[in-house]
Every structure is written in structure tokens, then in C-alpha cells.
């Protein structure tokens, strides 16, 4: 914390010192000014406006009309699509985030061994993360899992079974999107790998001397030492999962039968297709509350399972 207090020592030049401090602060603020301006105009300002608009009916072309809690009441009571979108998104997050993290940790463990070619594999595994968010990949996924796509062709060849239109089938559509997310396990994998490298070798050596086998070492050393990184990846993937948009917009358009109607997509439809901005703002604040609660729960629980080295001996 910076000290704002005027120095109490009554020296000859307190005024000079104050002037100098003001000048220093002005210089400091000139450095953070661009960000501060952006933060006020593009983050805080919009948040306040968004909150106010969530109590109005507003279609951009006409002036906002104050309707109190109507949007919120409608969302929770008479909007079945909201519950569908919420359910789809929760299902997506609950399935894809743990799978992606477990898979990326498993692969990172394998790559951590002293084998040749690790660098090449690491590169190959990271490429999908690099391009995963692009339109090109979304289009590619749609064709791969389409009725005449490569996936069915391979299934036909290997097992002789006729395929399905995985994208258009309500029972499988969401799973194709989950698969797409897991396909991009590269960046959590890189983070896990870097974390594994930071675990002191002596810990493993000491455990081996004590006769601990691989499984014990994994659960007693690797996992505890990695918990800060698991925590970081978990928070990042959670937020990412809750706000997924491009994939459902481009690959499935929310269909079939709303089975992939992601929350972010539903919000987009209200805002930019129906131009029901007030309603969309209310949806946005509910999303913020959900993401905030989920993140807060993870943070709260972290003291029970995240191990920080600096705590040692405390």
C-alpha cells in the first residue's frame, strides 16, 4: 500500500516534498492512464450501464423503458429456453472441464518422462489449441462429423457400421462439441508440464528411498505439488466453458432441439438478433452471478486442497 500521509517531520522543505510527490504521482498516472481510460470506458462504465439496462425494455432504436424486475422475473418464470440454455451449459462445463484437465495432466505426465521425441509430441499436441477457436476449425468439425464426413467413413471401414449425422442428432450433438474442447487440451498440458518441471527431484528420490511406488508418489507428491496449477487451470477452463460461443454458433447453431443452446449463444440471440437488449443484459448479469459463484466456490475450496510451498512449516 502506498502511503498518502504527509510526512510529520517538520523539516524545511515539506512543501517541496509534497510538490515532488504530486509530480511523481502524476507521472505514474500518465503510465497507467491508457489502461485506466479503457477500464472506465469499456469495463466499469459498460457494467454500470448493463446493470441499469437489465431493468429496462430496450430495443436500441427506441429509448429504454424502465420495467423494474420484469426481465428477471420473466427469465426465471416464463422462459423455458433460459433453463435449457443453463442446463446445456452446465452439462457442457461439468463434463468437458474435468475430462480436459484429466487428459492434459495424463499426457503431461507421460511427456515428462525422459523419452526422446518429447519436444515433437508436445508441439503436435499444442497445434489444436492454437487454431481451435477459429472459424476454420469450426467448419472443419462440422464436416468431419456430418453424415458423409470422415468420421462415419472411418467407422464404416473399421466396423462396418453405418454412421449417423452426429451434429444433427440431438443425443450426440453436444458430445461433438465436448470432443472439440478436449481436442484442444494443449494449453493446460503445457502449463502442467511446466509445473511438473518445477517439482524438486529430491522429493521423488527421498520417496523412492522410503519405498514409495509410482502410484503413491503420484498421489503424495505430484498431485499435491501441482495443486496450484490444477487450481489455475480449473478456474480458467471454467470461465472459458461458461462463455463458449463460436463453436455452438457455427457448428450447431444451438440445435438440434436446443441441445447445444449455449448460454452465450442464447444471450447473443436476444441481444443481436431480437435486439432485446434489456433482456440480454439481465441474462448477462445472471451469467456473471453464475460464473462468479462457481469461481468463488473454487477459490473458497482452494484452501482445503491447494498446497502452496510458502505455507510449509507455517
Amino acid at each position: 500500500m502506498t502511503t498518502n500521509a504527509v510526512p510529520v517531520t517538520a523539516t524545511a522543505e515539506p512543501r517541496l516534498r509534497t510538490a515532488r510527490r504530486v509530480k511523481d504521482y502524476a507521472i505514474a498516472y500518465s503510465f497507467i492512464a491508457p489502461w485506466l481510460l479503457g477500464f472506465l470506458c469499456f469495463t466499469i462504465g459498460p457494467m454500470i450501464v448493463s446493470f441499469l439496462l437489465s431493468f429496462t425494455q430496450y430495443s436500441v432504436t427506441s429509448a429504454p423503458k424502465w420495467i423494474g424486475l420484469r426481465n428477471y422475473v420473466d427469465i426465471f418464470t416464463v422462459d423455458p429456453q433460459f433453463w435449457i440454455a443453463l442446463g446445456v451449459t452446465l452439462k457442457f462445463v461439468i463434463i468437458s472441464v474435468p475430462l480436459k484437465l484429466a487428459f492434459s495432466l495424463a499426457v503431461a505426465m507421460l511427456l515428462h518422462g525422459n523419452y526422446r521425441g518429447v519436444g515433437v509430441y508436445r508441439t503436435i499436441f499444442y497445434v489444436p489449441s492454437l487454431i481451435g477457436g477459429s472459424v476454420a476449425v469450426a467448419e472443419m468439425w462440422r464436416q468431419l462429423f456430418g453424415l458423409n464426413g470422415a468420421v462415419n467413413n472411418i467407422l464404416q471401414f473399421l466396423f462396418g457400421v453405418p454412421g449417423d449425422n452426429w451434429i444433427a442428432n440431438p443425443n450426440t450433438a453436444l458430445w461433438t462439441l465436448i470432443l472439440l474442447v478436449i481436442w484442444q487440451f494443449g494449453s493446460p498440458m503445457l502449463i502442467f508440464l511446466a509445473g511438473l518441471r518445477q517439482i524438486p527431484k529430491e522429493l521423488y528420490e527421498a520417496a523412492a528411498v522410503d519405498g514409495a511406488n509410482g502410484v503413491v508418489r503420484f498421489f503424495r507428491i505430484t498431485v499435491p505439488m501441482l495443486t496450484p496449477i490444477i487450481f489455475f487451470n480449473l478456474v480458467m477452463q471454467l470461465i472459458h466453458g461458461f462463455t463458449t460461443f463460436t463453436q455452438s454458433y457455427l457448428i450447431t447453431s444451438g440445435g438440434p432441439l436446443n441441445r447445444t443452446l449455449f448460454y452465450a449463444l442464447y444471450l447473443y440471440q436476444h441481444a443481436f438478433q431480437f435486439f432485446d437488449m434489456g433482456y440480454a443484459c439481465a441474462l448477462a448479469w445472471i451469467l456473471l452471478a453464475i460464473v462468479g459463484t462457481a469461481t468463488a466456490l473454487v477459490f473458497k475450496s482452494s484452501s482445503a486442497w491447494v498446497y502452496y510451498e510458502s505455507e510449509r512449516g507455517a
Binding site: 470506458c41 469499456f42 469495463t43 462504465g45 459498460p46 457494467m47 450501464v49 448493463s50 439496462l53 436500441v60 478456474v235 470461465i239 461458461f242 462463455t243 452465450a264 444471450l267 441481444a271 443481436f272 437488449m277 440480454a280 443484459c281 441474462l283 448477462a284 448479469w285 451469467l287 456473471l288 460464473v291 469461481t295
Partner: peptide, 15 residues
Amino acid sequence: MMLPAQVTVIPQYIL
């Protein structure tokens, strides 16, 4: 850094 873009995008658009 952790704020979902959805919360600010609508007022930004209006702005």
C-alpha cells in the same frame, strides 16, 4: 481478466 465479455459487450455495442 476474468470478467466474461458478455457482461460488457452490449453496452459497448450501444456506446
